[in-house]
Amino acid sequence: MKYLVPAVFIIVAAVILGASGYLYYQYYGSPRCEACGMIITPEMQASIIMTDVDTGQRIWTCCPGCMLRSVAAHPNVHIEIYDDWYGTQVPPAVIEIRNSSVVSVDPETSHILLGAKIIKGCANNRFAINETSVQLLLENGYNPSNPIAIFKNPLPNGTPVLAVSAALPGLLQTGIQYVPPSNMFLGAMIGIGIIVLILSFVAWKKLIKPIPVKTTEGPIK
């Protein structure tokens, strides 16, 4: 029983530090979409291969919307993207972007289905290389027999269908949406920390004072 307090403290501290460490490992260990932060799945890795031509680095991206949003941080990119209906049955479309402008799209009939304009969320975006694929994706949302289908959900009604060059300016403006916490929030965290520290110290000092015992005897005369 003598070692109960240090043992409990060490176990709880180890659990929370371990959980935090695991989350750090997850954060740095698995690639995340640079534009929105979503964890990159094997389907995403296989569907969109985006490379910064200036640095030669692979840019991780989760959907066609975030792909173009990432151009805000990488103005010169080479993209190979598979059609969301046909998957690997047909060769990927190739998009070249230089100085944040579309230089070429092959095939030229390629379109982005930007369902995120209707219901926000990457799961509502698709890429199609021709009109047939556009119609099939609008009707069904995804192809169950496409092994690299990223999102398996129907598209919202009224999903806009845009050419890559038409979709780029708006998405470029949205850019990478990391929202850092405000200084007020961080200040509040420090303030709470100081209060908790003082509270604990005062409790440790004051609460351990012996409890007074009531006496039934009268005052001493």
């Binding site: 109960l4 307090v5 403290f9 709880v12 965290m189 520290l197 604990s200 409790a203 440790w204």
Partner: peptide
Amino acid sequence: KLTLMALGFSVLGTIAV
């Protein structure tokens, strides 16, 4: 014991912050 543990956790939190 509890207040000592409270002090320990508040110090741990402050170190981590």
